[in-house]
């Protein structure tokens, strides 16, 4: 097993194909839009695009996103070889046009041309007491990242207090403000509590849940179900053309907060919800 090759294949899979649960959700959204409507036309184009990308092995979207890795490794594992393999794979994936060069130095304005730079790719390392290494990758689009939002409760403009109803209100406000600009229909990750940075981190990590997988905490599971139904009543629809599906799913999680703070972070991801994972044990790789 050559680690770089294994990562290259993971990146290729993430850029050119969606997970089956995401594709099923898109198909179901298509079937729920009125026949002949602009929304139905959008969903049909999306499904056809997904099929062609898989067949051609070309990127689903020309914005192949920022690379965000989450790695759980066994005790005694070391990070530097994994980091080097990821960097080499990202560079090669860019050469092969699985990825567009998306790492820009904010000071000089220069694009590094190979997706490498400070914190690019971004890697979360975590050690666990299991024998295998689990690697999860998200390709996070820039347009949808721009419509994410963080609120601190209370938030008077929408009468949001420091409770779950307050959380519900600011999520509705964020999705309303996003309109179709995050490439709707999207997926919503919600991080409740923590600090400014950990609230966003928690919201984004929710995207590794399967579509339809509810929170194990009953009050959050209820909130997810209620928000999915309410957000779809906004009528923003695919691409913001109006329609029945504004969001495809909502995932929430909570963590302890400081008594003085109550942050709610909302991360939006476009319909091109690209995340893949793989497991390595004894030199054997399994892709999800």
């Amino acid at each position: 097993m050559v680690l770089e090759q294994v990562f290259l294949e993971l990146i290729r899979r993430a850029a050119v194909d969606l997970s089956p649960d995401v594709e099923t959700a898109l198909r179901s959204a298509h079937d729920h839009e009125a026949a002949g409507s602009p929304a139905a036309a959008v969903m049909k184009t999306i499904l056809e695009n997904v099929r062609q990308a898989r067949e051609n092995s070309t990127p689903i979207c020309q914005d192949t996103g920022s690379l965000v890795f989450y790695i759980d490794h066994p005790l005694g594992g070391t990070e530097p070889p994994l980091r080097r393999a990821i960097e080499a794979a990202a560079e090669e994936a860019t050469k092969r046009q699985y990825l567009r060069p998306n790492a820009v130095d904010p000071l000089s304005g220069r694009n590094s041309g190979n997706n490498l730079g400070v914190n690019a790719p971004h890697i979360h390392f975590h050690q666990w007491e299991k024998p295998e290494t689990r690697i999860r990758l998200m390709l996070k689009g820039g347009g949808s990242e721009n419509v994410g939002a963080q609120y601190k409760l209370p938030h008077a403009a929408v009468k949001a207090g420091r409770d779950l109803d307050g959380v519900r209100r600011v999520v509705i406000d964020a999705v309303l403000n996003a309109q179709g600009l995050g490439c709707a229909p999207g997926f919503i990750g919600i991080g409740i509590g923590g600090s400014r940075d950990t609230a966003y981190t928690l919201s984004k990590e929710q995207f590794f849940r399967r579509v339809g997988e509810r929170s194990p905490r009953p009050e959050l599971a209820e909130l997810e179900i209620q928000l999915k139904e309410e957000l779809n009543r906004l009528g923003i629809g695919p691409m913001g053309f109006g329609g029945a599906t504004t969001v495809l799913d909502v995932f929430a999680d909570a963590q302890h907060r400081h008594p003085a703070t109550f942050f709610v972070s909302i991360t939006y991801t476009c319909w091109a919800f690209r995340r893949k994972s793989m497991t390595i044990i004894n030199g054997e790789v399994t892709y999800d």
């Binding site: 999306i46 056809e48 695009n49 051609n56 070309t58 979207c61 914005d63 347009g143």
Partner: peptide, 9 residues
């Protein structure tokens, strides 16, 4: 359609 990169290409 935003994101339909391959189909449009």
């Amino acid at each position: 359609v935003g994101g339909a990169g391959t189909l449009i290409a």
